[in-house]
Nucleic acid binder design. Structure first.
Length: 564
RNA sequence: GUACCCGUAGCUCAAUUGGAUAGAGUGCUUGGCUACGGACCAAGAGGUUGGGGGUUCAAGUCCCUCCGGGUACGCCA
């Protein structure tokens, strides 16, 4: 139930043409103007009234209950002054009652979602740029699960292809190698292929052999890619990221379902053999609007398949599972490619997943480049961040065991990187810089965790169960308390926005604002030393804030710590 | 060259998706620990929202154009 439903109801019954979607309640620019504001543009338009006129009628004509103290207009806005006791109690009651579910709009109840993310090439340890994909994908999974979707997380393992072939050629005995060796071997193999056409050709031969189903070759590829995947997953697990399914690209060569795609393309005259004997698609025949990316090659002249061809089979596989929502997280470099895939599928009457794109993380010196060694590896970053957090935890949590402190330091490090990445809109380039990413002060994940730790500290010292909101008086006398409460009440809207935008960035904004409001409250409103009625109220506000922050941070994959 | 993404305070990012006076952090200046945890807080300075035009009651947000950055157009994946 919307805490402002009792404001909406009298308006809705006076103007039956309106629905509650037309009434946008929000916080006024400052508390002097009122406790809550109603913006009337949308509703006025529907009623063909001038917004200020409509606002005036609401203020004059409508009788609100006794819990509305005052109603006045400011041009197109109606501002309300409320009985803060009634509304504050209502907000806290709801949060404490719904607990870990608080904020969910439950839009995914009874629905299934399939999300593919990360899917990085197996030849390198993930750097923070690649990790952006994983963090965005993982946070969307958390968001959808919070909305009660039944989510299955898929990781597409690119276990065949030129890069892997070169890697396989270069390691005769993969069992004697570690994941870290692999990076060096890959770089060397790549360099060699550029200078040595013979070597490069061997790679393509190996590819052709695996497509023909040669068991021995398959085993060699498998050994190498398994080793790589294991190494990558271990790093991603440090960020709290995991997957339900690993789909291997090698399972989608020469998939029979591709025949129906080829038939459809043929019938639209979009399939042709180009001058280099590749089987290709002319997308302009099926609605591609411009010249670049007009042609897509599916099969090489020797009959082996190109990446896109296998990916189409994989995409069909995923779509055929019939989930209500299919998402895929892709780097911005895949924009055109994904359009091409979607177009080819649509020619055969099939649909493609909804892409979520993200832009690259850049270094101050320019783009990250694995080959030039201009990368920040995720594992290196986490090591450094954990070490820095550990110093602080050392002095703050002397009573905890070294193991406990270590866990906390790791969770602070995760909060730092996840928050830094996720709070930025995905389609923006971000400049990575060690200093600001390792900073734990200001607008950071650790700052929000710190607010949680402070709340926990108060609740610990209180030493009793949190009182029931229904019993006793519920004084809300300060602006700081009210501002915090209305912020908590707005969480559900942030979640709805996040779902709609397919981005958890608004949640990042929400936790910061909430933490900031809490800190103001913390400084202005003594809890434990307050008179009983006030103390009970404030303890409940603390508990509700903690619950809300915990839920919101959970969507970001960040632990709401009790100590740090 | 063409297409797509982005451009907001010195720097890193917000702005309820077209709505009240464009907000935070960081950096800089000043102040606050006999503390419910200083990984904090208070105050100050900092803006022609890249430039120009247009659409309307209203534009950082939509349209056109120019400038700057990113990405893509492979027998790579």
């Amino acid at each position: 139930m919307n805490p402002y439903q009792s404001l909406a109801d009298p308006i809705l019954s006076a103007f039956p043409e309106l629905t509650s979607e037309d009434l946008a309640f929000s916080a006024p620019p400052n508390l002097e103007m009122g406790d809550v504001a109603l913006r009337t543009f949308e509703a006025a338009r529907k009623l063909s009234l001038a917004p200020p006129q409509f606002a005036a009628r609401i203020a004059k004509e409508i009788a609100f209950g006794s819990d509305v103290k005052e109603t006045f207009t400011a041009g197109p806005y109606v501002n309300f002054r409320l009985d803060r006791e009634v509304y504050g109690r209502r907000i806290v009651e709801r949060i404490l009652r719904e607990g870990p579910r608080y904020g969910s709009n439950e839009t995914g109840a009874g629905k299934r979602a399939l999300v593919e993310h990360t899917s990085i090439n197996p030849n390198a340890s993930p750097h923070v740029g690649r990790a952006r994909n994983a963090m965005i994908g993982d946070s969307l999974v958390r968001l959808l699960r919070f909305e009660q979707y039944d989510v299955e997380v898929h990781y597409y393992v690119n276990d065949i292809g030129r890069q892997i072939a070169l890697l396989v050629l270069s390691c005769e005995h993969p069992e004697s190698l570690t994941f870290d060796d692999m990076l060096r071997v890959y770089a060397e193999a790549n360099a060699r292929a550029e200078e040595d056409p013979e070597f490069a050709a061997q790679g393509f031969e190996l590819l052709a052999r695996i497509e023909q189903g040669d068991e021995e070759t398959k085993k060699r590829f498998r050994a190498v890619t398994d080793l790589c995947l294991k190494g990558q997953l271990a790093v991603l697990a440090r960020l709290g990221i995991s997957y339900d399914r690993f789909d291997r690209e090698s399972d989608f060569v020469q998939d029979p379902r591709l025949e129906t795609i080829l038939d459809a393309l043929r019938s639209k005259n979009a399939l042709f053999t180009d001058e280099e004997m590749r089987l290709s698609v002319d997308l302009s025949k099926i609605g591609h609007p411009y010249e670049e990316g007009r042609f897509v090659a599916l099969l090489r002249s020797n009959g082996s398949s190109m990446y896109g061809y296998r990916d189409i089979a994989y995409t069909i596989e995923k779509m055929d599972k019939g989930a209500d929502l299919n998402l895929i997280v892709l780097g911005e470099d895949h924009r055109l490619y994904m359009q091409q895939v979607a177009l080819i599928l649509s020619a055969a009457g099939k649909s493609a997943p909804e892409p979520i794109y993200y832009s690259y993380i850049l270094l101050k010196e320019g783009k990250m480049s694995t080959r030039q060694g201009k990368v920040v590896l995720l594992s290196d970053f986490l090591d450094e961040a954990t070490a820095r957090a550990a110093e602080k935890v050392e002095e703050q949590c002397k009573d905890l065991t070294p193991d406990e402190r270590k866990v906390i330091a790791g969770q602070v490090a995760v909060a730092a990187i996840r928050f830094a990445i996720l709070r930025v809109g995905a389609n923006k380039n971000v400049i990575f810089d060690w200093d600001s990413s390792l900073s734990f002060t200001g607008d950071t994940g650790p700052y929000v965790q710190y607010s949680c730790a402070r709340i926990s500290s108060i609740l610990r010292r209180f030493g009793k169960p949190v009182p029931e909101p229904s019993g006793g008086p519920f004084p809300v006398e300060t602006g700081a308390e009210w501002a915090l409460l209305t912020k908590l009440a707005s969480f559900r809207e942030y979640v709805a926005t996040a779902v709609q935008q397919r981005s958890v960035a608004p949640i990042g904004q929400f936790v910061l604002e909430t933490a900031r409001f809490f800190t103001t409250f913390y400084h202005e409103c003594p809890v434990l030393d307050a008179p009983e009625a006030q103390r009970n109220t404030r303890i409940q506000i603390c508990a509700a804030t903690r619950q809300t922050l915990e839920n919101a941070l959970g969507l970001l994959g960040i632990h709401a710590l009790e100590r740090m």
